[in-house]
Design a protein around this nucleic acid. Sequence first.
DNA 1: CAGTATCCGAGGTGATACTG
DNA 2: CAGTATCACCTCGGATACTG
Lengths: 135, 135
Amino acid sequence: MDKRVSEIGFRLSDCDMSGGDFDKCPVRDVMSQINGKWSVLLLHALSEQSYRFGELRRLVPDISQRMLTQTLRELQRDGYIDRTVFPTKPPSVEYSMTPLGFSLFAALSQVIIWAERNHPAVREARERFDAAERS
Amino acid sequence: MDKRVSEIGFRLSDCDMSGGDFDKCPVRDVMSQINGKWSVLLLHALSEQSYRFGELRRLVPDISQRMLTQTLRELQRDGYIDRTVFPTKPPSVEYSMTPLGFSLFAALSQVIIWAERNHPAVREARERFDAAERS
DNA sequence: CAGTATCCGAGGTGATACTG
DNA sequence: CAGTATCACCTCGGATACTG
């Protein structure tokens, strides 16, 4: 019985990441960008509707202005979200998800759903591990 | 039309991460552990079969001994892999995936497949962004 | 073989202050 | 309103040497 998840084509041998070059490793090239502390949360928010900068800030209270700007720019750079400036005074900027972003989030949502469902199991595993270590 | 991905229960308002406490945010609590540079690659390897320490080292040539040890321990702590010691001389240690690890990897594989398929699109988006910035 | 211990540099993150 | 700029910390990751 082969437990391998099919459809996955990438091989570890393809992933020569020496020199910090992820070009040969699509998985890490994509994931290293959504690895940020806030990326998934922002993608989740924008998957529901478009938001302005200040709205996102209020929606994710713990995020600093610096990290909100930076994370949004990274998501925009990778083509996951669009940034639309309305030249009003004062200016207003709307962030919205692109089709590419929606398709990424569809895949990511599997992990999100898994995380919610299995969070208790993970926490229990950690406690068992930590308890066993102390002895 | 609601583009929201259903089945997702978590709300940003639940994710009070002040104080570095991720307990209230299952998504980040789980993902922050697989955020490491090597976690997904090791999960992928072990999803195919069990490996010994040295085998994994050869399989992922770029990884340092330090990071291999550390990443394996984190994955074990979260309950994704098992560590079995055979008291031979010299000792031999086998790492294998747990059912929890398999179920996580099933969800993760959606992202892996997406990354392989859409890597070119992401790279093009980056180039467009960088080109537009230089002007 | 399968680790540990130590040091170090790079980058991610936050706090604060300032701007068109 | 929607950012930039600067500083300062702190974790992550790599290199090297050592061990049961």
